[in-house]
Design a protein around this nucleic acid. Structure first.
Lengths: 138, 138
DNA sequence: ATATTTCACTTGCATTTTACAAGTTAAAAA
DNA sequence: TTTTTAACTTGTAAAATGCAAGTGAAATAT
């Protein structure tokens, strides 16, 4: 556990957030959990962005320590661990959705992603509900 | 210009965003511009979080290169430069506001910040309009 | 006119973080 | 009982960060 142990205690809510997920990988892990149903170390490792194994392990440990995700044993496979979003983690969905919406305004998106932006704009609450539902469906 | 030259071109809107502002400082600079009316190098340097001078210079350069902010001469003081938010930069306000709202749910906030969270929840559009107005008031 | 201060940076260097490759451990499947 | 799968850990070079000090140009003071 090497990263982000240096917390900036200024009372600023932006700073608090950045100290937890203000790096190049944490929100991508959460994106995969929220939007792509990923929930194992191997799942996250397989993302297009190619996160390093040690960095992934470190980020998972940190997100867990911050109460954003939880780790549990897979009851159907003893060598597999399952990561899930806590309520605190699920509550980060709006941050991710607004990031997607912002990018959607400035870069080209494929059909699927464009559809997601449309849904963010037209059915935000429904989408959020879906994210929460899936996260709590153990 | 050392940072973030390695862009991950996966077409993912979250990745695009993180490659631009996914670090410990960029969003703090934008926070100061959006919420505290700061607009000079010295202003940003004076933030409670104590950013290093070289890092600040680097981030400003990057944000400018990405079209998030613009740099101009202060007409009233030849040795001062003024940074302002572009439309693309102003459009990041929702990301910052959702981060604030999220943190507000999980940490203690002082009265002023609590009031901001309340306004985010009750007068989001008005707040956004204000941010845009102030940014475009040259 | 000259000296000093202000402002926006740049430079050098030690420390920390990241990325890549390889290795370990335990459980499951062959 | 050997091999494979899954989740990591370890080692190390490269890159980013943080800190202190320095630079250059414009404004202010003397």
């Amino acid at each position: 556990m090497k990263n982000f142990d240096r917390k900036r205690q200024t009372g600023c809510p932006v700073t608090y957030g950045l100290d937890i997920f203000g790096d190049r990988w944490s929100l991508l892990i959460l994106r995969d959990m929220m939007l792509h149903g990923k929930n194992t170390y191997g799942d996250f490792l397989a993302a297009d962005e190619h996160i390093s194994t040690n960095i992934l392990a470190d980020r998972l440990k940190h997100l867990e320590a911050e109460g954003i995700i939880e780790k549990s044993d897979d009851p159907e496979n003893g060598k597999r661990k399952i990561y899930s979003l806590t309520e605190k983690g699920q509550d980060l969905a709006p941050v991710i959705l607004e990031t997607i919406r912002w990018s959607g305004k400035y870069i080209f998106l494929n059909k699927e992603r464009k559809a997601l932006v449309t849904r963010i704009e037209n059915d935000r609450d429904g989408l959020l509900a879906e994210i929460h539902q899936r996260a709590n469906a153990n």
